[in-house]
Amino acid sequence: MKNKFSLHPATCFLLLFLLTALLSWAGSIYEWEGVRSLLSDEGLRWLLRTLLDDYILSPVFQAVVCLFFGVGLFVHSGLGNACRRIADGTRKFSRKEKRALGLAAMTFLGYVALCALLAFGPWNLVRSAIGTLAGSPLADGLWGVCSLGIALPAIVYGFASDSYLSDRDVVEGMAYFYKCRGTYFVVLLFITLFFSSLDFSGLTHYAGVPDEVCRGAYLLCCLFFLL
């Protein structure tokens, strides 16, 4: 009975969007200051023009797409389980696992050292035109850099521990989190739809809710349902 009547998070945010649409329609009728109706010609045009852009261009979507590659490899290769065992105080590792962990650790440290050298070294390869990290190519590609930093040690661990035998295993690892958490992208679509509709309708401004609070709530929802 519990499973029968429980709603999926995607459905909950769809219902919240519909509630926002009704409230915005009522607000436009009663002339609430700054409120625009989603159930209007203007609202329909906004929905058609911006929904996919708001979704695909959202920083959360881009970050998750990048990180899923690295995190998938981290879990699929067995490195995640090995790190968990270390955190739990388990010291019983085979010689091959110890060697694989050592190689993965050296790979990670080498990657971090390379990134630090590129960021703060004498070369201006990944910094901005004025030599700062703000607005630099490194900052723009931060999520990709982080994902690669997770993926490389995982690949090294996978081959060193024989959990990976060919490039097909690496590809499977990159796709692993998309298989396990694929529904998250559906939930994210409706989270984005709900918060974008709030912004367009002007209901949050009418209620006196600051934009910073809305952005924080959006990020909190995205993170909560990802975990």
Rank of each mutant, 00 (worst) to 15 (best):
N3S: 15
N3Y: 12
K4G: 01
K4Q: 11
L7V: 05
P9M: 00
F13K: 04
L16D: 00
L19Q: 10
L19T: 12
W25C: 14
W25T: 14
A26W: 07
G27L: 06
W32S: 00
V35K: 05
L38Y: 03
L38K: 02
D41E: 12
E42F: 15
L44D: 10
L44K: 11
L44M: 12
L47V: 04
R49M: 06
T50M: 02
L51W: 13
L52F: 13
D53V: 14
I56E: 12
I56S: 11
L57K: 15
S58Y: 06
P59H: 03
V60I: 04
Q62M: 02
Q62F: 05
L67R: 05
F68H: 03
F68V: 07
F69P: 13
V71G: 14
G72D: 06
L73K: 02
F74L: 13
V75A: 03
G80Y: 10
D88A: 12
K92M: 04
K92I: 13
S94K: 10
E97Q: 08
E97H: 09
R99W: 05
L101A: 04
L101P: 00
G102H: 11
A105L: 06
T107K: 03
F108P: 13
F108S: 13
L109W: 04
L109E: 07
Y111E: 07
V112M: 09
L114K: 01
P122A: 08
W123M: 05
L125F: 14
S128F: 02
G131Q: 07
T132R: 06
L133F: 11
A134W: 12
L138Y: 11
G141Y: 01
L142H: 13
A151R: 03
F159Q: 03
S166Q: 05
V171Y: 00
E172W: 08
E172P: 11
Y176I: 00
Y178K: 11
C180W: 01
G182L: 07
Y184S: 11
Y184H: 05
V187Y: 03
V187I: 06
L188C: 07
L188T: 10
L188M: 13
L188R: 14
L189D: 03
L189Q: 01
F190Q: 04
G202I: 00
L203A: 10
G208E: 06
P210K: 04
D211N: 15
E212W: 13
V213K: 10
G216W: 08
L220P: 14
C221E: 04
C221W: 01
C221H: 07
L227Y: 10
